[in-house]
Design a protein around this nucleic acid. Structure first.
Length: 467
RNA sequence: GGGCCUAUGGGCUAGCUUGGUAUACUUGUGGCUUUGGGAGCCAUUGACCCCGGUUCAAAUCCGGGUAGGCCCA
């Protein structure tokens, strides 16, 4: 197993393979196979996302994968942003198609012509939908499992509103949902309004959701966009308001991808393997029976009983009753990052306890059988809290204020003054090689001067090298 | 966008310079044995990325393709 701090790239690929997350031997660049354990993780995340969107009155939908070229090309900025990286379907059987079809890189242009049919009156608004699907982008850069792929598993929510302010409220609700998801996965993040030259093609503004990886680079996990009427105008999505006037809807989208899996590997993993946050761990608990020849039956029966108690209590538990040495099982489940390991052996049964091992801290101890369920719940909650706190602390340490162009640290997220003009922004990026991630979505206390032109400013910018 | 490197059983790898029978470890399978941190023994399955060229002969040399990795913009 390679070392996380010294060689992040190699360590990352090592974990993906050894923890059984994905098989990158599929013979198309950037298209990997989700293997069972990796897909379990993705499913846990997806099902939590469904829970969140369902609870906030979004309806799940599922749109076709293919989009007619004419429909795709309606919004000028959007097509300009994507046309170099879309896949085309040009043939069906032996015939060339009259109209080429785009394999969706994202679903705006699939959905919006339908939204135009669905929405007629203000009574139809807000329209709040989401879908969890795969999208395709022909990445030319180096691909990497979960982080840069050509077939991307993601969720996208699309909403339509009567006016700017109502859409703005949706952005704020999205941010609240994000906070809950991040806590569940124990991932720190920043909310930065992207620069004009980096916003989503067609968006009025884009809020990037970034986290930082151990090599000092940031990873964009998702984004939230306010479209204003930029799409509703070309796609003619209008409604009749109370006064009988016809108006364009204001739209938002929100998306996060399988990069969440990449982020949790990078943020939480260590040199023993993955560490899964209890909130989305496919198995929160692994139960390992320890027996000798003479007590095998008794131990197995007690462990089986414990498994069913834990399952009834709602824990996701794996009872590892394979015919293998306990040590071998320990190594395997540590690699897979199961947050809590329980060992049940003759000594434990005698003492009416079960032994535990915490994956995050390495701490060992026992839980009294009489206190089993609440004891485990407390441990899992504490593991989650510790993981989140530790990750946030690390992210904080990776952020650094700078006020001059001298001695810029290469492996930090930089915070500095920026007047906000394009010229200074581009100059900063060109000089340093850093990418400006944007300015804080929530106002930050700041007083300084633009690092390029020296003008006073009360808004900082953040910049980093990106994955 | 530009450059460099690599491709051998499921995984990792030796052999390639100097062309001729492909190496070790691991995994898998069957058996015996064992189980509080990767056990041991015996038997056994399994590979030279694809297309073309040079040659009596290609894993090895040459060209192209595909896939993967790294570095720089």
């Amino acid at each position: 197993m390679s070392n996380k701090e010294d060689n992040f790239a190699e360590w990352y690929l090592d974990i993906v393979e050894k923890a059984g997350l994905s098989d990158k031997r599929y013979p198309i660049k950037g298209m990997n196979v989700w293997t069972p354990y990796g897909w379990r993780i993705m499913r846990q995340i997806d099902s939590y996302i469904r829970e969140e969107f369902d609870a906030t009155d979004h309806d799940e939908v599922c749109f076709p994968l293919l989009i007619p070229e004419s429909q795709f090309a309606k919004e000028k900025e959007h097509i300009k942003g994507f046309d170099s990286e879309v896949y085309w379907v040009t043939h069906a059987g032996l015939d060339e198609l009259d109209e080429r079809l785009v394999v969706r890189p994202t679903s705006e242009t699939a959905m919006y012509p339908m939204f135009a049919l669905w929405i007629r009156s203000h009574q139809d608004l807000p329209l709040k939908t989401y879908q969890i699907v795969n999208t395709f982008r022909y990445e030319t850069k180096q691909t990497r499992p979960f982080i840069r792929v050509r077939e991307i598993h993601f969720f996208e929510s699309h909403t339509c509103h009567t006016d700017y302010d109502d859409a703005q409220k949706q952005v704020d609700e999205d941010i609240e949902i994000l906070a809950r998801i991040a806590k569940k996965i124990c991932l720190p993040y920043t909310l930065l309004v992207r620069t004009d030259w980096d916003k989503f093609p067609g968006a009025y503004y884009t809020v990037g959701i970034d986290t930082s990886m151990p090599n000092g680079r940031t990873l964009q996990m998702g984004s939230i966009h306010h479209y204003k009427t930029n799409f509703s105008e070309p796609y003619e999505i209008t409604y009749e308001d109370k006064n009988g006037e016809h108006k364009y809807v204001h739209q938002t989208t929100y998306g996060m991808s399988e990069r969440l899996v990449g982020a949790l590997i990078g943020v939480h993993g260590d040199d023993q393997g993955l560490i899964m946050p209890p909130g989305i761990a496919p198995f929160q608990i692994v139960l390992i029976p320890i027996f000798k020849k003479d007590n095998q039956k008794a131990v197995m029966a007690a462990a089986k009983e414990m498994e069913s108690v834990l399952e009834k209590a709602g824990f996701r538990v794996k009872f590892d009753d394979r015919d293998d040495r306990p040590g071998a099982k320990y190594y395997e489940w540590e690699m897979k990052g199961v947050p809590l390991r329980l060992e049940l052996g003759g000594r434990d049964i005698e003492n009416q306890v079960v032994s535990f091992f915490r994956r995050d801290s390495g701490e060992k101890g026992t839980i009294a059988l009489a206190n089993l369920v609440p004891g485990i719940q407390m441990l899992l909650d504490d593991i989650s809290d510790c993981m989140f706190a530790k990750a946030n602390e690390i992210q904080k340490q990776r952020t650094q204020d700078i006020d001059s162009m001298e001695n810029i640290p290469e492996d930090k997220i930089l915070r500095f003054g920026w007047c906000g003009c394009d010229e200074c922004g581009h100059k900063f990026e060109d000089t340093t090689g850093f990418k400006i991630l944007g300015r804080p979505y929530f106002k930050e206390e700041f007083k300084g001067k633009c690092i390029m032109c020296g003008k006073d400013t009360d808004t900082p910018a953040y910049a980093a090298h990106t994955m």
